[in-house]
Write a protein that binds this DNA or RNA. Structure first.
Length: 399
DNA sequence: TCTGGGGTCCTAGGACCC
DNA sequence: TCTGGGGTCCTAGGACCC
């Protein structure tokens, strides 16, 4: 069987590039890619970290994920712009649309990355490396931002290749190039070898991807279990995972929020939890799913995270039901420590159409849901919270 | 460097059943 | 009686990705 040919298209510095392009398009003269600039949260709300940085900011030592405060210390003339996700979605959609012209199999891996399965398209497109350059240049000419294209015989190799050197580059990492191009790289560069795993691998003298590829598989799986097996295969360039063009259904839906100040009062935290229940239940109903596991996560002022979850015998998606379960979880778990982050996640979806009843299932759920759906419809029609829970109205939003 | 928010998957331990 | 071992489910926590 002939080898697959996979492309990985990765937007260079996506958030910053997209903000820059959008500003130019709306008539601004300044290209923020050419000055020290970052995309970051609002620092008054103490959530401020650097999400993306321009090259001039990088040269001054600004790194991703550091606080805006610290970034500004390194670079006093730094310009800070908030992320605008609706704009990012537009550019992401536009790029995806172009890519779909070249292959029927395009996978949206994240907002700024796509995989294309180009296997067997040579007769249509001619030389595929040339095509990669064509695609890259077309995206720049039509949309105004640069991308990297990685080419390989698997998704893993294509992805590793697109990471080689940036920006605006095409790289290959075919199976016969793995030894020469991938094995010399530090182990931290390997997909799925994060900070903790990299540290552990270094402790047993595995410092490069090649070291892992040639290590004893038994020893690796003993120490790292399933992750070890996977990393060993990755280090050898083995990855059969297919390019999947349709988005897989969500396995979980949740929201969390880092608060402007640590909360110490039970009622304040419950208010936040109720807000999250509103958000999460709206999303569940939009996807038309019922969740049977509810997870509440708290992070305290010392950055210690803890969570509690509840498995139900039936699925729920109304605000009242979700908040009820979440509230009970919260009572069980809260240690009366100052809380910095509150999270609410739902997983283990059950089919909405087979609405299950059980003796524990309050009979009001069905009626509740009808009302809830109606509220969703009205709110979406008027694009705002025309109808909301009365208890959410008069609340002190500043916490 | 006083550290976001959206996800997925894995593991270990305990409860419970046979 | 107070002792085994396997299977399954649930829970809490941790690691990784973008």
């Amino acid at each position: 069987m002939s080898k697959r040919i996979i492309f990985h298209v990765d937007v260079n510095n996506a958030f910053l590039s997209w903000t820059a392009v959008d500003k130019l398009k709306s008539g601004e003269k300044l290209d923020i890619r050419k000055i020290p600039a970052v995309i970051g949260g609002l620092k008054e709300e103490r959530k401020g970290i650097v999400l993306a940085k321009s090259m001039p900011a990088k040269i001054k030592g600004v790194v991703t994920a550091e606080t805006l405060l610290s970034a500004r210390k390194k670079c006093p003339d730094l310009k800070i712009y908030p992320p605008t996700f609706s704009v990012y979605k537009e550019y992401s959609d536009a790029m995806h649309k172009i890519l779909c012209e070249y292959s029927p199999l395009v996978e949206r891996y994240s907002i700024d990355e796509c995989f294309l399965d180009m296997t067997g398209t040579e007769r249509l497109h001619g030389d595929l490396e040339n095509l990669a350059y064509t695609i890259k240049d077309r995206i720049y000419n039509e949309l105004g931002f640069t991308v990297n294209v990685g080419i390989g015989n698997s998704k893993l190799c294509a992805k590793m290749a697109s990471d080689f050197s940036k920006p605006n580059k095409v790289h290959t990492l075919y199976d016969n190039e793995i030894k020469e191009k991938m094995w010399p790289l530090p182990i931290s560069e390997l997909f799925m070898s994060g900070k903790k795993t990299t540290e552990k691998l270094k402790q047993i003298d595995i410092n490069t991807i090649g070291n892992l590829a040639n290590a004893d598989l038994n020893m690796i799986t003993r120490k790292f279990k399933k992750l070890g097996y996977m990393l060993y295969e990755y280090a050898n360039g083995i990855d059969d995972s297919p390019v999947i063009s349709e988005r897989e259904a969500y396995k979980g839906i949740g929201n969390s929020v880092t608060l402007p100040i640590d909360l110490t009062e039970e009622t304040q935290i419950l208010d936040v939890l109720q807000d999250l229940a509103v958000q999460v239940s709206e999303r569940l109903r939009k996807e038309n799913v019922l969740a049977s596991v509810i997870v509440v996560q708290l992070k305290n002022s010392n950055f210690k995270s803890y969570s509690h979850q509840k498995k139900l015998e039936y699925g729920i998606n109304s605000v009242n039901d979700i908040y009820f379960v979440a509230k009970n979880l919260f009572y069980k778990m809260w240690k009366e420590d100052p809380i910095r982050l509150v999270g609410l996640r739902t997983t283990d979806f059950v089919e909405n159409k087979f609405e299950q009843m059980s003796i524990f299932n309050p009979p009001s759920i069905k009626e509740n849901n009808k009302v809830q759906k109606l509220i969703d419809e009205i709110n979406s029609k008027y694009n705002s919270k025309v109808i909301d829970k009365a208890s959410l109205l008069n609340r002190n939003k500043k916490y």
